[in-house]
Amino acid sequence: MSGDESLIDELLAGEHRALARVITKIENRSPGYRDLVSRLHEHTGRAQVVGITGSPGAGKSTLVDKMAATYRERGETVGVIAIDPSSPYTGGAVLGDRIRMASNVGDMDVFFRSMSARGSLGGLSTSTTDAVKALDAFGKDRIIVETVGAGQNEVDIVRMADTVAVLVPPGSGDDVQMLKAGILEIADVFVVNKADLDGADRTVKELREMVHMRDASPMAGHHGAGAGPSGIDDGDDEDERQPPIVETVAKTGEGVDELLSVLADHAEWLEATGERDARARRRYADEIRTLLRADSAALVEEELEARGGLEGYVDGVVAKETDPYSVADEILAPVAEAVRERRDRRQD
């Protein structure tokens, strides 16, 4: 434990090795990692966190590299977390995003960390959130979280950012279609990368139409028809802000300055409308829920093990002596009982 104590002190003192080690403990869920993260919490809240997602090959890593370099030119320090999928079969992974970090080599003030999606449901978003806290407490001004936008997992990850940028490569329009499934809603900014390629203009146009459609759609609920133009001035409805569309060529760095100023605008908007605090509250609520879910699942798992595992129950279900619902009730009954008993005692 004392080793972990000094680890946090070293991290706060700016030692890279300690930061790297803390993130490893978070990833591994090493014994005591919870205490580490608890201790980090009071030192967080300074960094601006940007989440970047998009389809494979959209140019995320290259863009992140250029963004980091540009922040550095402005004298700001940067932390990057790049998430790659791992094989569900072996758990192995090749984490390739680091190769693209060519503009920041040898610059320790860009702290780049690759993480793999190590299975467990909800686990990755917890690890990522915790790793971001470590970078934040370390004192990074800017933190970028980069992940392939493929499903709910990724959506959960980028949701913990202050600002979410969704990358769209120019193409047939299929990419834009694909975005509808859940990713459109989370974008604070759209980036059409590889804007020098044919079809970029069309992609921008399609995106623009889609954003308008979203706002006009009766399905969008509070985005009623007649939603005004985007901007800070109609801030009475925080969701009315339309995500701007920025064109970049990550390879050459074109458009990166504009992207950063759009991100800065968004940060200002978050601050001015109180949305930053509202989002932070939502995030903390999500975080607590996720932890509660994982911890109660673990508690049930523990009880299951104490009862000799699932196989015996499965036998009973196969033999039609019992059924899955009854089994679940039976296993959970003592847990539920204990919880309720305590609550009643408190209320007395």
Partner: peptide
């Protein structure tokens, strides 16, 4: 990777400093 390890590949033509940076940050 197939053995279940997490592998970070540096890419070609790296300087010793870059390798050190990667090894330290990636722990």
């Amino acid at each position: 990777r197939d053995a279940g390890f997490e592998v970070i590949y540096s890419g070609l033509h790296k300087s010793p400093e870059e390798i050190v940076q990667a090894a330290v940050q990636e722990d």
